[in-house]
Design a protein around this nucleic acid. Structure first.
Lengths: 149, 149
DNA sequence: CTACAACATTTGTATGTACAAATATATAAT
DNA sequence: ATTATATATTTGTACATACAAATGTTGTAG
């Protein structure tokens, strides 16, 4: 479906189209992801935090480190982590060397949940680019990286 | 900057990269848009509703019509419209033929605000695709439409 | 040692997103 | 006419996003 049909409007220039296409695609990805994660009682952002913590390979992460690496800008990592603690997916300690800092590590339950989710999320990501060829996928990523700068 | 650097992770497959690239680009567009609209005390979603109403060319729109045409799925058009009414940018009436329906029209102030914003938003949209060529822009839109289906 | 700036996190408020339940009105079936 | 069903909107709750202000901690200049 063309952008113009979605918005029931007349001709749009290509720059306007790009912004709308990006937003619509992001909306689609978000919805797919939310629907997939929902049965596991976890939000996209919570899932992202867990993946970042797993990437630490045992080393604890500060709130600011997590915030830096989040895909979407996160303006409230504190509350996000609170929810993960309630679900026993992460633990939080005060850093002994610098008591301003908070150290966060993923629990065994957190790691188990991620292992269960990994193949499910992989499948979803493949589905998301299921309507384009391998070549188009590569071109798309190249141009999108330029758009980001 | 490569996706892997952003996330400080090792190799990612192209499907995963696409989802991340889309989300990062959408985040960039959202931030640019928010920053631009902020001085005018209006959110992206409120701006979108105003544009939809202007597209009606005098005809009133129902809440469900607005909802259909929103770029991002909107699960709460009622409260969004409430805020626009408070700012005198739209008016709301109960439809006489079908009292279940609500008719919403843009006010003169709403139209004036849009006229002021139009060139500013156009510039922003051009900036957004400022790092890619005209040809890349066209290819990008073509492939993104396939991704959306 | 004290005052002050810098840093890291937390809290508060407004807005937006997702979904379910509630309300109100219109249409159809009996 | 009464009941049931569909339609259109509103309200409630939980979570996410954006930003500003507050809190607590560390490092440093005097």
């Amino acid at each position: 479906m063309k952008i113009e049909e979605v918005l029931k409007t007349d001709h749009l220039n290509d720059s306007k189209k790009l912004v709308l296409n990006i937003m619509l695609c992001a909306g689609k990805a978000t919805t797919m992801m939310n629907d997939t994660l929902k049965p596991y009682d976890i939000s996209i952002q919570q899932f992202n935090v867990l993946r970042i913590l797993r990437g630490q390979k045992g080393k604890p992460a500060n709130l600011s480190t997590i915030q830096e690496r989040m895909v979407n800008k996160m303006s409230n990592t504190t509350r996000l982590v609170d929810k993960l603690i309630k679900k026993n997916l992460v633990d939080r300690y005060i850093c002994e060397e610098n008591r301003r800092k908070i150290e966060i590590i993923i629990t065994k339950e957190g790691l188990q949940l991620l292992e269960k989710l990994d193949p499910i999320v992989d499948r979803l990501e493949n589905d998301f680019s299921g309507h384009i060829t391998k070549e188009e996928l590569i071109i798309l990523n190249e141009i999108l990286e330029k758009v980001r700068n």
